[in-house]
Design a protein around this nucleic acid. Sequence first.
DNA 1: ATTCTGTTTATAAACAATCAG
DNA 2: ATCTGATTGTTTATAAACAGA
Lengths: 403, 403
Amino acid sequence: MALDLQCSQDLYGEVGRIDLSHAIETLLGNDDKENDLSMHLLTSSTVSSRHSLESSSCNETPHLLDKTAARQHCRRLENIDTTPIKKQEPRRHLNSVNILCRSKKRKLEDKVRFSESGKKLSSNGSKSGRLTASVASRFGPLQTLHDSNVQIIDSDGSTNAAIMVKDSSGKLHPAEFVPVMVEERNGGFFMSQNNSSLNNDKDVLNYQENRGTGQDDSLTNITWLKRMSAPGVDSVEPCQIQFPDPECERPPYSYSALIQFALISTPIGKMTLKEIYEWIQSKFPFFKTAKLGWKNSIRHNLSLHKIFIREPPDGPGKPAFWTLRPGTVVRLPENRLFVMENKHGSKNGGSAAENFPLQHSMDAKACIKQADGTTQVVSEKILQGRQFLFTAHYILGNPVFDN
Amino acid sequence: MALDLQCSQDLYGEVGRIDLSHAIETLLGNDDKENDLSMHLLTSSTVSSRHSLESSSCNETPHLLDKTAARQHCRRLENIDTTPIKKQEPRRHLNSVNILCRSKKRKLEDKVRFSESGKKLSSNGSKSGRLTASVASRFGPLQTLHDSNVQIIDSDGSTNAAIMVKDSSGKLHPAEFVPVMVEERNGGFFMSQNNSSLNNDKDVLNYQENRGTGQDDSLTNITWLKRMSAPGVDSVEPCQIQFPDPECERPPYSYSALIQFALISTPIGKMTLKEIYEWIQSKFPFFKTAKLGWKNSIRHNLSLHKIFIREPPDGPGKPAFWTLRPGTVVRLPENRLFVMENKHGSKNGGSAAENFPLQHSMDAKACIKQADGTTQVVSEKILQGRQFLFTAHYILGNPVFDN
DNA sequence: ATTCTGTTTATAAACAATCAG
DNA sequence: ATCTGATTGTTTATAAACAGA
Ligand SMILES: [Mg+2]
Ligand SMILES: [Mg+2]
């Protein structure tokens, strides 16, 4: 007796096996260990459709031997259920960013595609000529892209870079640079987009804060989320990520994001491992009852990703702290950002080019709510002095930074 | 009816569940979907010992509720079988490196521990004083360690850094710097250690090459491995990693290592994805019959690790190439290394500090077998001009670099 | 001796883009 | 030109091995 049980992503045809002899022994009371038992994870409907497909000829119907293709087929047609070995949460929608780089003078043009996290995915660049000119914005020239010799080029010789954004219909149009509101808090800057003063250079709005005292629950409190689009702040687009019922559903954030949320929720910007566990469990009760192993995943993320830095303990026997690498950009709901202040320049936190693969200084003024409670309209110079660079991602409205 | 089936590494007590209703339906011919079926992955012996343990008091016997602890217990006592959900290959033994940093002048001392891949694991460093002096070696000052303000300090004011090595018995003793033999090939340098001339600065040995023509099978050919410890080259220690029977056993290398071996086996130092698949399958036939999904893992490694860089295709419709990031150090069997030449300086390949967290120029001359077949004894200056830095890891005899 | 913390590798998966037929 | 399945590439989740405190 043999039933197929598993199939990897790469091939549908071959199946793995699991030893069910112990289960059989218990279930049936016999000890026939010769039984070679496994089970199709394909549902019966899938099995039948697969069988019918395989028995027909090649050219007429798909083989579905490749599981990637099968699941792709599944997504396209939405009529075949291919149950995976391990069911995972659906991924948030991932976007890529197309940037048109061109230099009129040198008659060069290239289109570069980036992933959300800033990794360069492709470029058509002809190898014969290279785009090397750079834009002089009000904060200085744009940086060279991280792993590329291609730079973002000004389209007309002015100070506006030609960053083209592909909208949902696939049409390319130039990205716009907008003013930003900034609040200095928890060792960094909380930033939100202000779209209403797009065409008015002088229009710097005040951020009305009406937050209560006590624990900072800014990340899970719906009222705070609303507040960010309150007085004077026009939300550019509604928040696409809704908080699910925290009592039962899994939060739609990656482990890495959850850790980032935890770390920026404290005034000192650092936490012990145990505190991270507890913060996540308190804010997302899903993890109070979650399948065990999530703590393993937390530790895995802390260790793997360079944005999480272990700070040695205060003394022997005390627990170590985890902090965010200076300059880290944390993406928050409603297109807001938190930027960890780079207190030590680029010394400890890596080069600016590493932290901001798609960096661009904002062509805007900002109103900063400072840590001491006072409000200040800051000039570009102050922003620049703090190494306060804004990303193209933010402007495009759908950033997820690094990890 | 309930049988435990899965448990994660973090907790033994709680169990996951798998829906076996379909299997039961098939097996038993009934459709009693109310059965809540799962199965202990503990063997019966484990279960019994666990039961007895749990029924006794806390202080006398271990609870074995934590699976990490249980498996550790398992390794120690070797009498409890805790079958994991997914059985993995045993890891190669991992070593850490202890480096003693001290400055006599400033009366500061610190011991820093590094993982094999160069990540700083711990230091006792008092926060009151920092070690900032650096060694002037024959190739210039030592670099600051990657994520630390601690530098390797000379112990006595001379040009030898006090790198202390912990041997198998746990005793610390100073590391020695030895001459090296170098062959320029396949876009980088193959290097082997020459221990026989340790105390003779002038003794630069020749590397007798008797390799045949044709395909470069240097990584899987045992005769080549022997050759590296042939004329004039005393092997420091026997190779601890034996090639298993390639026909059936899995090679004791990580996916990342296999890809690195593949990439440095070609004269041009780059390969397409398909060629990587084929090289690995040809050299390690295990993968001809391996469980599917290993190709997924290869792609995963290529994409994840920064040492693997995708080079855009020559033209539309052609496949892209994968190369090693310049400066990458590939660890080979028998304590040999391959260092990818850094043709473009630190521009494309990241800073030297990133590539060589524990870098140290060798206090030695080298005999280079050049790509054109000629042999040349090179001076330090040439080595330096090529940014040819040696790692403390290599000297310690057990390096695994980055990923 | 056990638990907690931290590093690294393996494996499966979701899904985007592109290529081939 | 469009659909479809295969291939290539990026990212996240999960389990595991194992070291050291
Ligand atoms: Mg980390
Ligand atoms: Mg890569």
